[in-house]
Amino acid sequence: MTRSRFNIFRFAVPQNFYPLAGKLAPIFAVTAAVLFLAGLWISFFIAPTDAQQGEVYRVIFIHVPAAWMSMFIYLVMAFWSAVGLVFNTRLSAMMAHALAPTGAMFCFVALWTGALWGRPTWGAYWVWDARLTSQLLLLFLYFGYIALINAIDDPRRADKAGAILALVGAINVPIIYFSVKWWNTLHQGASVSLTKAPSMATTMLMGMLVMAFAAWAYTIAVTLWRVRSLILERERNAEWVNEELDRLEAAA
């Protein structure tokens, strides 16, 4: 265990990652709470009314960060799944598992807020255009992934099956993102992208970005906490878990 120099791969070992996650999670949770409150303040009190839509556009401060997060989390899940398949590391599969529920949550939020935003602006809660349909597919992919890994008892096989679904499903993410460019959709194009200047007033953009960073911090905190439970479950026969249980029993 004693190693002379710092090695990042040390934290690929569940035993080392568990206490690290325990230390980092509260930091990210506090960051998320602060950013979330700041984001709410900007969203309602600093960002001005929209010329076209009036106040209803304020749904954007949740809708867009949630939609970004739902796509990004799926890509990170696919990344960890690939790492797990290639290097056979235990922790990477656990990371993928820990991300899925939060991804599904953000995906649901994006769809829900989208529906509530669509009714007063477009005139419909739901339409089957390419953007909305592919985002709905993403929600089903999350549900499918969670159901699949829970349906298989052998953890190794569950990891593998889940990883394959995560990787295959990742194709859907660029489809969601580019759907508004590739096809005629009712959904408008991106207001913020890497290729052009944002088509939003600065304070509106600020509100959206602060909320997006809050969502990031929240995701990291929640994932780290969830992966700690997963690590305990998976490593329950290891001596260090035994010692951790001693500590938890004494504290209780």
């Binding site: 010329a51 076209q52 419909a124 408008q188 194009g189 088509s199 939003m200 509106m204």
Partner: peptide
């Protein structure tokens, strides 16, 4: 039989729109 509005991705305050 149905009319939907398609808005653009520009968001700005009324003064800026003006």
């Amino acid at each position: 039989s149905e009319v939907l509005a398609k808005h653009d991705e520009n968001y700005m305050p009324p003064e800026a729109q003006h």
